[in-house]
């Protein structure tokens, strides 16, 4: 077949195509200057992305009742592009929260020294929870050397599953908590520190090592798409390795959009004192107000 034949065929096909009915080509939308925007901002998240809704106000109201991603609209059966990219951004933030380490400078800034669990890599941390509950041998020596022994209250932080949570909350929570304890006379507070690749259960070893009465670990929660910044506090009275999980008191959802870090710090100060006074934590501790003295 020579080229002219090919050209003829192509022309015929094109002519046929242009005649065929039912083929609709969408009109090209007007071209706008790209606007400055951040699709992860609160305003963008609150926006109703459903095309031509029956009642846009009603959808906006629904969005106020839940932080589930409703009113996101669609492209055929799939997400529109804004929703797709927002989801990817939130997942990326969550992945970074799990896999990134805390900067040394941040810890220096709030006066914490750093030690490690027995996990040497993030991978090991994720697949070996048993090792994440134990301090490395070197870390044991460092802690014994640097920390006050037999404190009434021992506080430490661990990255857990979100270093982002520690980064976002610890610098404001810790001083608020320590000031709150300072206000209450007669309570000795141990030397705070940070544990890399640490899990909640590590607090049991810390408690035994330092002979603390109340131990509190501030730890990053497993990040969701809604926030990667959520931190929890786990508290136990006379924590011991192998004790029942039900002896821990947990306060979760500490972040910018949940309980603000400064407020959580002030609340925890009261709670730690109540646990110290009650000599019990977890199911054995009847939560009181923490609002007085």
């Amino acid at each position: 077949m020579d080229n002219s034949v090919i050209e003829q065929v192509v022309e015929a096909v094109l002519a046929e195509l242009s005649r065929s009915e039912g083929v609709t080509v969408p009109e090209a939308p007007e071209i706008h200057e790209p606007e400055e925007r951040d699709i992860t901002s609160e305003a963008e998240r609150a926006a109703v992305l459903v095309k031509n809704p029956v009642d846009a106000e009603a959808i906006a109201r629904m969005k106020k009742y839940t932080n589930a991603r409703v009113g996101v609209g669609r492209a055929g059966t799939r997400y529109n592009t804004q929703t797709l990219i927002t989801l990817r951004a939130d997942h990326a933030a969550a992945r970074d929260a799990v896999f990134m380490d805390i900067d040394r400078e941040l810890l220096d800034g709030i006066g914490l020294f750093a030690v490690e669990s027995r996990c040497t890599t993030k991978d090991e941390f994720l697949t070996r929870p048993d090792l994440g509950r134990q301090l490395s041998d070197e870390s044991v020596s460092v802690i014994l050397e640097k920390c006050v022994k037999k404190p009434d209250i021992q506080i430490f932080a661990a990255d857990g599953l979100s270093s982002t949570a520690i980064k976002a909350n610890l610098p404001d929570l810790l001083p608020s908590l320590l000031d709150g304890l300072k206000n209450r006379s007669g309570i000795s507070v141990g030397t705070p520190f940070f544990v890399k690749n640490g899990r909640v259960g590590l607090m049991d070893q810390v408690s035994e090592l330092l002979e603390a009465r109340v131990t509190c670990v501030l730890i990053g929660e497993r990040p969701g798409l809604a926030t990667a910044e959520s931190m929890s506090a786990y508290i136990a009275y006379e924590a011991r390795v192998g004790m029942e999980e039900s002896r821990r008191t947990v306060i979760s959802n500490i972040h910018r959009l949940g309980v603000p870090a400064v407020e959580a710090g002030a609340y925890l100060a009261g709670l730690l004192c109540s646990i110290l006074k009650a000599k019990a934590s977890g199911v054995g501790f009847r939560r009181d107000t923490g609002n007085e003295g």
Binding site: N183, P260, E263, A266
Partner: peptide, 14 residues
């Protein structure tokens, strides 16, 4: 209005 009264109250007491 916003949830920071306990922290603020504590700081003012100091």
């Amino acid at each position: 209005e916003n949830d920071t009264a306990k922290a603020l109250g504590q700081a003012i007491e100091m």
